[in-house]
């Protein structure tokens, strides 16, 4: 038996892996927050408010799935907000200007969104341009295109079928929320139980190692960016459906809300680390934070401050915890 110097260390981390520990601490902070809001507003813990939260979770929730994927590969996608806006604009323009039936228009908008992601991915993998720079460029290009195509105008989308995407219910549960839950389930399985999902982690941790292990890194990145943009485009349709109109200015700043939620959920910007459960909790925390502050009638300026503070608190907590683990390792 080889004499190992780390006698009891592994045993300790057995009880909770660092991942699940992060998830648990996130859940605890969520519960603390919920208790706080319940004590501050009699309307927080009500069925109407929960129904409201359920209806308004999907946009950030669905976009965050894709962002989790690309962050795990040590990339980032800043274009999700722009893609969401373009998708809404395209759906309405195909419908109103080209008289294409709305379901087909919506589908075309989704496919265009996926195409944007594919192009992002190609630029990143073939031209080897840093994802931050690539998607910063497409962030601007796609937003610009949304303005050009719509001529800067907001278009009404008056169609009951289309309304169903963002407003419909099935068995009393909002359709958009159901879609979101199904997507989370599917991507949870993909990330946990498929080679594709596991390879994303390997790529994020070390592209070199992944290549040596025979993983086609470029293919995985292409798929990740395409999926991310596709989901963002879907989020764009939900926005358009909920508002009953499409605007080129829609989803402004969505990318930052989404990145905040994902990072809050424990996904590392350095790649190789992240869970969808964490992301889901991150999304819910952000949403509940906004909701609670509005119910408490906190000024909107302070709401901004609160969002930033929560993010910093969550991350520094994580940092202190991992710093502590690191300290223990330094011994050897």
């Amino acid at each position: 038996m080889i004499i190992l110097t780390t006698k009891s260390k592994n045993k300790k981390s057995k009880l909770f892996s660092s991942d699940s520990l992060a998830t648990i601490s996130l859940l605890i902070s969520f519960i603390v927050m919920a208790i706080f809001f319940t004590s501050q507003s009699e309307f927080f813990f009500t069925s109407t408010n929960f129904a409201n939260l359920a209806r308004t979770l999907a946009v950030v929730g669905i976009s965050s799935i894709g962002m989790t994927l690309v962050l795990i590969t040590a990339g980032v996608d800043l274009s999700v907000g722009s893609v969401a806006a373009l998708s809404g604009v395209l759906a309405s323009m195909f419908w109103l200007e080209l008289n294409i039936p709305l379901p087909i228009s919506s589908l075309l908008a989704l496919l265009t969104g996926a195409l944007v992601g594919l192009i992002n991915g190609l630029i990143i993998t073939v031209l080897k341009i840093n994802p931050l720079i690539t998607t910063l460029a497409s962030f601007s290009i796609i937003r610009g295109l949304a303005f050009v195509i719509s001529d800067g105008q907001t278009n009404m989308l008056n169609n009951q079928g289309f309304y169903f995407i963002g407003r419909g219910n099935i068995l009393g549960i909002p359709f958009s929320l159901l879609v979101m839950i199904v997507l989370y389930f599917i991507f949870f399985i993909i990330l946990r139980y498929t080679s594709f999902g596991r390879n994303l982690f390997a790529i994020g941790a070390s592209p070199e190692m992944s290549r040596l292990a025979g993983i086609n890194v470029d293919k995985h990145l292409l798929i990740s960016y395409t999926v991310t943009a596709f989901l963002a485009a879907f989020a764009g349709l939900i926005i358009a459906s909920q508002l009953g109109s499409s605007a080129p200015r829609a989803a402004t700043g969505l990318e930052f809300t989404v990145i905040t939620a994902v990072v809050l959920g424990g996904t590392s910007l350095a790649g190789g680390k992240g869970t969808l459960i964490g992301t889901l909790i991150g999304v819910i925390i952000l949403r509940v934070l906004n909701n609670g502050l509005v119910l408490m009638e906190v000024s909107s300026f302070y709401q901004e401050v609160a969002r930033g503070v929560v993010l910093l608190l969550a991350l520094s907590f994580d940092q202190i915890r991992s710093g502590f683990l690191h300290l223990r390792r330094e011994r050897t």
């Binding site: 190992l4 592994n10 045993k11 981390s13 991942d19 683990l325 390792r329």
Partner: peptide
């Protein structure tokens, strides 16, 4: 070595 241990937690 515990197969379930995170690589990060190893020496």
């Amino acid at each position: 070595i515990d197969p379930k241990a995170m690589m990060r937690d190893l020496s």
